[in-house]
Amino acid sequence: MGGFQICESDGRSPHTLKANEIEPYLKDHTITVSAEDILDKSKGDFLSKALVLLQVFWFILQVLARITQHLAITELELVTLGYAILNFIVYFCWWNKPFDVHYPIKFNKQPSSKSSKTSLPMPATNSSTASSITPTHEGGDLEDGPYASGTFTDKEKNASFQLACVVATIFRGIHCMGWDFEFPTKLEAWLWRTSSITITSIPICLLLLNQSNNAIQWTLTCVHSQLCHSKPILLVIPLQMVKAILSSLSSTTSVIKLGMTFLLYPLARLVLLVQMFVVLRNPDPGIHTSVDWVTYIPHF
């Protein structure tokens, strides 16, 4: 959402509060906003989200039914299945997140000789208050814009990266289900298999490289600390050599991660995107067979 903005009394541009800056205002009850006030700013509700998930679930159900009945599935449906499952994960994580919020919640900072007292927040919700709100952030430092957020600790960054790698592996692993699909040529079959394995293994490799790089950086810190306190020349020279080797390894892992992220993955993804449309020129006749819904869904 737009976050909270404090308007200075001297007329300066509003400042968006970060997570660590909001806490003092919450403790002294200067900012008192209920969950209902925040959800009221959302353009989406339970019904709209439920309808989207129902459509996605209907597609997933059809694909699973075709698999159960051993009916043919196209590569395009397989890729769409991956995105559909990913869509469920996104909706689960963002279910309570306000949708399409344009305006932040503003409150005025009142001057005081002893302490900085502030008035209660005044939500800006319509165009009639256009003179006192900032609908969008154009230019400038993003961290000081209306959509700024707090900073993350190293532990939170590592946890987020690990979770992203797990989700990416599951999503991309679905492409490997097309290993035994019918392809017009053997070359196209092996292109699909190779690309599927590539995009599935990249998150795992990135996770391992990231952990290795963290270990290297920790070791470098220890070596640097020893160099600062080591007096004998016999210890300094080996430590300098170890530091040079570790620095080289750190640079190598960074280059490998960049190559996987910006070269190998886009190439493999492009092959899959082209393949799932090209193979439709000669599809399996079984894709035209409908699912026997009588066995799976009660109906009238």
Rank of each mutant, 00 (worst) to 15 (best):
H102V: 12
V101R: 01
Q110L: 12
I297M: 15
I174P: 04
K97F: 09
D284P: 01
R12T: 04
V255I: 13
G140N: 02
L239S: 03
F277S: 15
N126V: 01
S212K: 11
K186C: 05
K27S: 13
G140T: 04
L207W: 10
N87W: 10
G178W: 03
H288T: 05
V223E: 00
G286L: 06
L267G: 00
T134D: 05
L227C: 13
R281W: 10
H70D: 11
K41Y: 13
N210G: 10
N20Y: 14
L234P: 06
F59S: 03
L54D: 02
V90Y: 04
V79D: 14
K49L: 11
K49A: 02
S127I: 02
L239F: 15
S116Q: 04
L207M: 13
Q5M: 02
V79G: 09
Y296C: 07
I204A: 13
H175M: 03
T198R: 00
S42H: 10
H299T: 03
E23K: 07
C222F: 09
L142Y: 08
P14F: 03
K106H: 12
F57D: 08
P283N: 07
L187I: 09
Y103W: 08
L191H: 10
I89S: 15
P146W: 06
L191W: 04
S212Y: 06
L207C: 15
F161C: 04
D10G: 04
A50K: 11
T125Q: 11
G3T: 09
F300I: 09
W293N: 00
L71N: 08
A130E: 09
N158A: 15
L26D: 07
I73C: 15
L26G: 14
I73W: 04
V278T: 15
